[in-house]
Amino acid sequence: MDRAIAIQVSRLTKAYDKHMAVSDLSFEVYAGEIFGLLGPNGAGKSTTLRTLITLLTPTSGTASILGHDTVREADVVRRLIGYVPQERAIDRFLTGREHLQLLGALYHLSKAEAAKRIAELLKLVELEEAADRAAKTYSGGMKRKLDIACGLLPDPKILFLDEPTLGLDVQSRLRIWDYVRMLKERGMTIVMTTNYLDEADQLCDRLAIIDGGKIKTLGSPAELKIGLGGDIVSLTLKDPGKIPTLVSALTNQPAMRAVKATPTGLDIRVESPEKALPAILESANRLDCQLEFIEYHRPRLDDVFIAHTGRSMKDDIPIEKEGV
């Protein structure tokens, strides 16, 4: 299917002194899709996003939004996009309505036009009742909703969401997901960063896994999972000292695709569990490796992430905040 391209990133590199925040990044975002940038903190997601919304100038390479370069035509780009920042970028002394009025003026809307749009947005994010209260009285979820309303005020072609549900309770999270899906249905293109795998899995049509400033893999969640090939059997051994023995015994058996040692046992990628499980148990018995726990599952996005980055999302190395 030939799809219209909304965002084109080619060979994007951003360096701070010696540190490469992103290096040689290339990808496309199609019109009308939800595109995710997934990765741990410091992976380069925010740098990529900030470049797309004209806040950063790339060291080399280019990014264009609906055909407009983010550096040379920054002003045109700014008229096409909406942005929902990661921090709660809220002025605690202003009311919700005043936030939207301020942005209305900054997008050069007439008073009447702004008022009409603000009323619609407040209704959409269910903040009508709280609209004239100072934002310092809002809950985290309400602030997030206001953030989203602010991002939607310019009626953008493309909406950028930076970690949209970070630090929110489960209910608010699901609510935000609903908004995002609804916006997609209205034809909006959405780019979001997240470090929640389930969020990427649930929402994104396609996603890029970024680590160390590079794209490790890119595709729809389903494609990425299938790409791993095979289901996974995870073993936990009573005696971790036996792990190497069992790894070498299983490695070249026909039913096993790949055998990997983990800190507590083994992860075995298998073609069909019916053939593999008896063989695994037989080997374990023969070598006297007592099993503490055995688990079988289809690949999850977690596994995709581990397969491509060599580590789990949870092993975040805290890195100082990217960007300025």
Binding site: T54, Y83, Q86, I90, L103
Partner: peptide
């Protein structure tokens, strides 16, 4: 982050 929001407007 408010400044960033202002800076993404035209």
């Amino acid at each position: 982050g408010f400044l960033e929001r202002l800076m993404t407007t035209p």
